[in-house]
Amino acid sequence: MSATILFTIISLSAIGATAAIILYFVAQKFKVYEDPRIDQVDEILPAANCGGCGYPGCRGFAEAMVKADDLSPFYCPVGGNETMAQVAEVLGKAVEAKDPQVAVVRCSGSPAHRERINSYDGASSCAISSSLYSGETGCQFGCLGLGDCVDVCDFDAIYMDEETGLPVVIDDNCTACGACVKACPNVIIELRKKNKKDRKIFVSCVNHDKGGVAKKACKVACIGCSKCVKVCPFDAITMDNFCAFIDANKCKLCRKCVAECPTNAILEINFPPKKVRTETPEKPKVEASKPVRTSAEKAGTIGEAKPEETPARPTGENKNETK
């Protein structure tokens, strides 16, 4: 009896010891040297693995940064300047602060403004719809409304508004990783500089049709009239192929163009409404009765995660102190 037990214990221990020795040597032989700084940098990164930096996941990004001599081409859109500063500290390199950005949806073609002339019945994907035809409306440039941008967002920062059928960016969640920009087949989403209190002024239209054609398809299309270009005191607006574009870096948020636009294609977001009224009381399109036009529901971008809980709109004393 005891012999059996003894035999079992000895033989199993022997097998275990042999295996341990083999494992030790194998581990030694196949050891891969890895720069310990990669782990350190990886720790700092937000571990979102969104690919917004252009590398396959956070670890790939960390490896690339450790190898690189200069950090200027690298930027983690999720962690922002804070993270990059920490990384620079670990690696002993310098890094310049970059302006934080936010995704902006440049289309206001809700059913009210843009008539649906047919109905799409295929798989629910913008990429498939756009490979098939120009979309449910007469506008072949705008939002297709099937939510590919929502599907790719890793941060719950974008959702489809059921009423307008347009995606809405939640500024506080948006990290500007750019996934939605890449997913949108019509490239209507743009990363723009983030301003104080999430204020923004942009042309919410990307169509390149001539004015008449554009207007027929969508009431709030940019018709390429160039009024905004003329009124802009900072030369921030350019006209390209019948569509205006406001350079966020040059724009000083003066809102002159908003008042000038005949189709309401230029949107102002998160501005106090009172001022709008006093500044341009005679302009019919920014009437007090329709402040909705400039607010979250209509626009496509809002400053609060839950729009229905926000009072009328974020005002000066809003807690929205993102930057």
Binding site: I117, N118, S119, Y120, D121, G122, I128, L132
Partner: peptide
């Protein structure tokens, strides 16, 4: 009514 559009 509106035409339906779907891939083949």
């Amino acid at each position: 009514s509106k035409l339906f559009i779907s891939p083949s």
